[in-house]
Nucleic acid binder design. Structure first.
Length: 198
DNA sequence: TTTATTTGACCATA
DNA sequence: TATGGTCAAATAAA
């Protein structure tokens, strides 16, 4: 399931080094989503290039860092982090950060096999039919943040670091958000903010 | 030879 | 000072 864990209008942790070599886009708002699955999301419809791997203090597993394979060619700033957060059954959490601006539209070529992971998806086509296997249950951060405030006042009074939250409090998430209904995406039609568009 | 991945070092932030 | 994110050289694979 997706955890709309954070939406931040400041540069997230880890852009520190980048900031020293700055460009004007650094101040733009960044979007962040997390998604849990029993297996790593290797074929999520995008082409990724791994650029790092790090042992995370709060977890016994390493976290892998990927950026869009077209980051240089198309100046795409989309990134994702992937980390195993649970052993048995194994659960992998994939966190997407930033926007894909590499302009390749798989939906313009119906015969393409999106499962091979070699194609790019345009997120401005999210209102079109999208295979659940490609991008299941994408949930905007604000949507869940609102739900949190409504349902768990006593819990959400606490401030928390996003990374701690992702690693350590997954069971809390599962408790608060056991599952989304099958029509969950339909409910998002009222949510007019598309995070992957500028 | 080219392209992708691995991995230790570096850096900013808290 | 600990930590997480990124860089970039070394290495592996195609």
């Amino acid at each position: 399931m997706f955890h709309g864990a954070d939406k931040s209008c400041k540069a997230p942790p880890g852009t520190a080094r980048k900031s020293s070599k700055n460009n004007s886009n650094e101040e733009e708002c960044l979007e962040q989503y997390s998604h849990d699955s029993p297996t790593p999301l290797l074929n999520d419809g995008f082409s990724w290039r791994k650029y790092g791997q790090k042992k995370i203090k709060a977890s016994s597993h390493q976290r892998c860092y990927y950026r869009c394979a077209y980051a240089k060619d198309r100046n795409c700033n989309a990134k994702k982090r992937e980390q195993q957060i649970q052993d048995s059954p194994s659960v992998y959490r994939t966190t997407y950060v930033g926007k894909h601006i590499c302009d390749v539209n798989v939906f313009s070529e119906p015969d393409d096999d999106i499962a091979n992971g070699s194609k790019m998806i345009r997120f401005d086509k999210m209102d079109q039919a999208m295979p659940d296997s490609v991008m299941p249950r994408l949930a905007p951060v604000e949507q869940q943040a609102i739900t949190i405030e409504e349902d768990t006042d006593q819990i959400m009074n606490l401030e928390f670091d996003i990374n701690e939250f992702l690693v350590d409090d997954d069971q809390l998430w599962e408790y608060q958000f056991p599952s989304f209904s099958p029509g969950f995406l339909d409910d998002l039609s009222e949510f007019d903010h598309n995070p992957f568009l500028v």
